[in-house]
Amino acid sequence: MKLIPLILAALAATTAQAADSIIVQSTTSTANSGLYEAILPAFKDTSGITVNVVAVGTGQAIRNAENCDGDVLLVHAKPSEEKFVASGGGLERTDLMYNDFVVVGPANDPAQVASSAKISEALTKIANAGALFTSRGDDSGTHKKERALWAAANLTPADASGTWYRETGSGMGATLNAAVGMGAYTLTDRATWISFQNKSDFKIVLEGDETLFNQYGVILVNPDKCPNVDATAGQAFIDWLLSDAGQSAIAGYKLDGQQLFFPNAPK
């Protein structure tokens, strides 16, 4: 068969990868915001390393990293990240940057959330009014955060799952689309919200509560556990992110004139 070598050649061509490249397991919120497109070219210029970003929920990103399917983990769910490091999945975890969560909802604000100062108050109003609320429901960093916020307000929305509390089981963007589609409130990271383009009449109804702080951390996947990890290139990427150059690249990324991420790596 003349076809076989042809196919093998085609396969080889599709397998060939840049010699120096790493895989970063990250979250949809960072990837959808456009941050990586903005900062990665600068890193590639200085290091020659290609960074390939896989954007999934934080939960799945950590599981993928546990399966050794990545060199670097860049997510936002500190307790899970620390557990990942403690179990030997990754080396040191370092704070990288933060943004914050906001509650968005329809302009007419049916549960009058906008008058709240605290997130716990806002969530109580939503629950009492039985106003629609879409949850990621996907074990992502945002989802973990949201569950923690409900718990802090002594509410168990899961009891109302399927009625006013709706778990999409999808990424941030899909959940925002769902919220807009059904006129529901939802919790989103600010970066995704700013870059989200299907806002319709939706607006931020609550922001500024310091418990809505959203910390991102970066971790090198443990090369002792995962021999396939390119520790040199992965560490180079982490070092660059934490350096002045990386930090100012993060700070410099703006959308619609608004800064999306605030670097806060330890000096």
Binding site: G173, A174, Q197
Partner: peptide, 8 residues
């Protein structure tokens, strides 16, 4: 991806 970005 574009759908999740809301860029319908």
């Amino acid at each position: 991806l574009e759908t999740s970005k809301g860029d319908l």
